[in-house]
Measured scan of single mutants.
Amino acid sequence: QWKVGDKCSAIWSEDGCIYPATIASIDFKRETCVVVYTGYGNREEQNLSDLLSPICE
């Protein structure tokens, strides 16, 4: 189960590419979260089910 502060990978809606991110907040009722893309600072809402394991850098 994901928690705030977890590192993950998420698909950015603008280009469909996968980027490393950190979970900033979680809404368990809606099963969504807000991620912050590492190195970019962009925030975006994602479905918890769409999150991927962190990418090894």
Rank of each mutant, 00 (worst) to 15 (best):
Q1Y: 13
Q1N: 13
Q1G: 13
W2M: 09
W2E: 13
W2P: 12
W2Q: 11
W2C: 14
K3F: 13
K3I: 13
K3A: 13
V4P: 15
V4E: 13
V4A: 01
V4I: 07
V4H: 10
G5V: 03
G5P: 10
G5Q: 06
D6P: 00
D6W: 09
D6M: 07
D6F: 06
D6Y: 05
K7F: 12
K7A: 12
K7G: 10
C8V: 15
C8S: 00
C8D: 01
C8M: 00
C8G: 00
S9P: 07
S9G: 09
S9D: 07
S9V: 09
S9E: 11
A10L: 03
I11W: 10
W12I: 08
W12M: 07
W12T: 08
S13D: 05
S13H: 08
S13K: 11
S13Q: 06
S13Y: 09
S13R: 10
E14N: 05
E14T: 09
E14H: 14
E14L: 14
D15L: 06
D15R: 09
G16T: 01
G16Q: 05
G16V: 07
G16P: 07
C17D: 10
C17Y: 09
C17F: 12
C17N: 15
C17A: 10
C17I: 07
C17Q: 15
C17V: 08
I18A: 08
Y19C: 01
Y19K: 01
P20N: 14
P20W: 12
P20L: 11
P20T: 07
P20S: 11
T22K: 03
T22L: 11
T22C: 08
I23N: 02
I23H: 04
A24R: 00
A24G: 06
A24C: 09
S25K: 01
S25D: 07
S25Y: 08
S25N: 02
S25H: 06
I26F: 01
I26R: 00
I26Y: 00
I26G: 02
I26V: 01
D27E: 03
D27W: 12
F28Q: 10
F28V: 11
F28S: 10
K29H: 12
K29L: 13
K29F: 13
R30A: 12
E31F: 10
E31Y: 08
E31K: 14
E31Q: 15
E31H: 10
T32S: 02
T32C: 05
T32N: 03
T32P: 05
T32Y: 05
C33W: 11
C33F: 09
C33K: 00
C33Y: 09
V34Q: 00
V34T: 03
V34L: 06
V35Y: 02
V35D: 04
V35N: 02
V35I: 12
V35L: 04
V35M: 04
V36K: 03
V36G: 01
V36Y: 03
Y37Q: 03
Y37L: 04
Y37A: 02
Y37K: 01
T38D: 15
T38H: 11
T38R: 03
G39W: 14
G39H: 13
G39C: 12
G39D: 10
Y40V: 11
Y40H: 15
Y40G: 07
Y40S: 15
G41Q: 06
G41P: 05
G41A: 07
G41I: 05
N42A: 13
N42L: 14
N42V: 15
R43M: 14
R43N: 03
R43S: 14
R43T: 12
E44I: 02
E44Y: 05
E44P: 02
E44F: 06
E45G: 02
E45D: 01
E45H: 07
E45P: 05
E45N: 01
E45M: 06
E45Y: 03
Q46S: 06
Q46P: 04
Q46E: 06
Q46Y: 03
N47A: 10
N47H: 12
N47R: 14
N47S: 07
N47K: 14
L48D: 00
L48W: 04
L48I: 01
L48N: 05
S49G: 10
S49F: 07
D50M: 06
D50L: 05
D50K: 01
D50F: 05
L51P: 03
L51R: 01
L51G: 03
L51D: 02
L51M: 04
L51W: 04
L51Q: 02
L52R: 08
L52Y: 10
L52C: 05
S53N: 10
S53P: 15
P54S: 08
P54I: 08
P54A: 08
P54Y: 07
P54D: 06
P54F: 07
P54V: 07
I55W: 12
I55N: 09
I55D: 14
I55K: 03
C56E: 15
C56A: 15
C56Y: 15
C56I: 15
C56Q: 15
C56P: 15
E57R: 05
E57P: 12
E57L: 10
E57A: 14
